[in-house]
Every structure is written in structure tokens, then in C-alpha cells.
Design a binder for these strands. Sequence first.
DNA 1: TTGTAAATGTTATATTATTACATAATGTTA
DNA 2: TAACATTATGTAATAATATAACATTTACAA
Lengths: 132, 132
Amino acid sequence: MQKEHNLSKNQKIIFDLIDKSRGPMKAYSILFNVQKKGIKAPLQVYRALDKLVEIGKIHKIESRNAFIACQNSSCQVSKATVFSICESCENVSEISNSKLSKYLSNFSDSSGMKYSKYNLEFFGLCKKCKSK
Amino acid sequence: MQKEHNLSKNQKIIFDLIDKSRGPMKAYSILFNVQKKGIKAPLQVYRALDKLVEIGKIHKIESRNAFIACQNSSCQVSKATVFSICESCENVSEISNSKLSKYLSNFSDSSGMKYSKYNLEFFGLCKKCKSK
DNA sequence: TTGTAAATGTTATATTATTACATAATGTTA
DNA sequence: TAACATTATGTAATAATATAACATTTACAA
Ligand SMILES: [Zn+2]
Ligand SMILES: [Zn+2]
Ligand SMILES: [Zn+2]
Ligand SMILES: [Zn+2]
């Protein structure tokens, strides 16, 4: 049961844009695309992005400084994320592999650290790009 | 057997600084610290960083836009990295766990993607910060 | 309805990273 | 050694990413 978050006006505009986009979007590209809807300043974009990340509707692809809609309906928060990134065409997908997730969520080592969150990015060539 | 890379002047200055530092360093903090050694421009720093990452002497902590010396003598290139990051004190360590590395290096899914690289960042509280 | 938290609007600025172009050092091969 | 290619450097300008500070408004619960 996923908590229903009532997105605010700006949050909804920005989420819809990212959700419809084919790939990850960068903050200033988002800004450019929503200016006709009245969102004029970077900060308005970043605030919405922060909130959307916080509630798990989108994730940040750290190595790309870009944002993608959650492709995994069970992600309530962005605290256990795995992505595959094609280094040629820059296509990004969210991987949901329960065995991998379980393995990572249960990971612990001798450092005494308590891990509450992780982000994993796999890089390589997608099917299309491999065959070129 | 690790290939010996003869670092250039700037590469050496910047690697030594990062290597001596207690934690990850940011590019402009590096710049500030090496100005007395004649490195005056951001680009000089970024070029050295790029090279050092390429040969695996340092790694980039993507979520922090910061750079850390490789703590794992067998890392010849930055292509299979795992870090633990304390969200309170920002302490970062490179995790070298052969079981985990093997698991991740062998990971494949049904997407048809061939993975050649990964970066995993674990977040949590370190021992010290937990007990505060 | 009053208080509080969340969201918005706006301007300015900080931080991170790259482009473009010129020159110098290094290493390889003929 | 001469010629060539590769790698590294220097410098200036600018692009791209992200936050600080402050004023106001909206949503919503006590
Ligand atoms: Zn997700
Ligand atoms: Zn591809
Ligand atoms: Zn390493
Ligand atoms: Zn800590």
C-alpha cells in the first residue's frame, strides 16, 4: 500500500514532465521545458526535485546529474536504487531484482556501520549499442 | 602486478594532496590547496583528476562530487567501486569485499546489457555517529 | 481562527565543470 | 637525430549545476 502523496502544483508539473520523458532529464532542461507553465527559476525546479526524490517518485542518477521517474511501483522512497546505464546512448533503466536488492539491503561489514540506503549504477553497452 | 604509471608534475601534486587528505576532496578545494604550487586554473585540476580516475589512483564519489585516493591496492582502474558514506560526518571508505565484488561483477539480467563497470554507494551512520 | 508546516516567488550568488586555443614536454620510429 | 605523434600544460572565458536569503502565500490541523 503506497502512501498517496498529493503533489503540489509545481511538483506535479515537474513530475509529469519527467515521467513522460524517454530518458533522464537534467534540471536546467526541466526548467526550460516548464517555463511556459510559469516556473521561472532554478530554485523552483530544485525544490520540486528534492521533494519528488524524497518521496520516491523520481530518482537522481548521480553519475549524470539527471532525474528519472521511478520505474518500480514499490519504491516509496529513494533509498535502495539500482540503475543500468548505457555509456553509448545514455539510456537508463531502473533495475528491480529482488535477489540483488535483498543482497544489498542485508549487506554489512566489519566497520560497524549501519547502512540504511544504497545506490548502485551499472555501466555498459545496451543491446542496440553492442551490435553496432 | 600493477602497471606503474609515471605521474606527470600536476598529476603528482594533486594525487599527493588527495592521498594525504583524511577524506574526499572537492575540486575547488584541491585547486585552492595547490595554488601555491603553481596550479592556477580549474582545468588543470580537472585534467589531472580525469587522468587519476582513469588509471584508478583515485575515485570519484558521485553523490558528493568529491575525490578520494584508492584505498584498495588492487584497483587498477575505477571500474568496480564500492563506498560507505556516513551521512552525518561524511566519512567515506572504500569497501573491498571480494564476495560482494564477485557478485556485482557477475551480475546480469534479461535486458541484454553487457555490464563492464559499476559504482555502489552505501549510506548510513558510522560507529561514532551512531552512538551520539 | 489561529497557529504551523509546506510550498511558492524572486533575486542574487555559489559551486562544479567544460570549451577553445596556444604551447611545451615526452616518447616512438625512421 | 629528425620527424612525428601523443600527452601534458597554460590561460581565459564561459557553461552547467546548485544553493542562500528573504518575502509571501497556501494548505491544513488544533
Ligand atoms: Zn524506483
Ligand atoms: Zn545504448
Ligand atoms: Zn579503489
Ligand atoms: Zn559518522
